[in-house]
Nucleic acid binder design. Sequence first.
DNA 1: CACGTATATACCTTTTAGAGTATACAATGC
DNA 2: GCATTGTATACTCTAAAAGGTATATACGTG
Lengths: 114, 114
Amino acid sequence: MESVFEIIAEPTRRAMLSLLVSSQLSVGEIERQLRVPQPTVSKHLRVLREAGFVESTVDAQRRLYRLKPEPLEEVEAWLAPFRRFWSAHVDALERHLDRMGPSAPPKRKTRRKR
Amino acid sequence: MESVFEIIAEPTRRAMLSLLVSSQLSVGEIERQLRVPQPTVSKHLRVLREAGFVESTVDAQRRLYRLKPEPLEEVEAWLAPFRRFWSAHVDALERHLDRMGPSAPPKRKTRRKR
DNA sequence: CACGTATATACCTTTTAGAGTATACAATGC
DNA sequence: GCATTGTATACTCTAAAAGGTATATACGTG
């Protein structure tokens, strides 16, 4: 599993990240909140940890997990160029049609169907 | 493939979306720019189309593909709650440690190791 | 030291996504 | 009608991710 995008493709992992926005949590707390078997939680946490999404500190027998911002910032960064695209929202498509890139209709009888 | 997150987990698909930010493109143009076999392009385009990331219009033998904003807005929406988290960036972690959620250290001898 | 709790890991199985190859389909131009 | 270009689809194969179950490890307490 390389990219941050593959990491957040998994629904349970996204849920875990969302939980951790509010506060750090132990494995058991996550397990109870998400109603998911403990090994599953641990395995997903491992993936998240190795990808830098979370880090943990030891608290007696527990591990407290908290978010780390960097990987999600990567997602944010990738998303950025598209933002201009939906900022206009409703008429975005209309403007796009006018922009017309390198694929501008070549010679043919039927012009753009519409 | 259900969620938008699984869709953008695939690197080639992300590349295709990024290409389409600038302008609409035909299958062949995408194929050449990404140096990827045509069936691969078509298959990924199908996935993107069915998930609402792109739409196509017919232009003689070609299909011109262009972006649709909605699905990426979904990603944006999911990401939003985390934004406050990295806005402070450097000291985000520090502040987080102070916030200390429900996992606040219980009774024990060794307090937070650090 | 024996026991309970908290978490991690190992192993096995199922499922599915993606690649590759070949082929079908559609439109065009001669 | 036939060849060519552009795109979609069908089929097969492989790899890998996720789940389930069992077990290991670590800590704390009596």
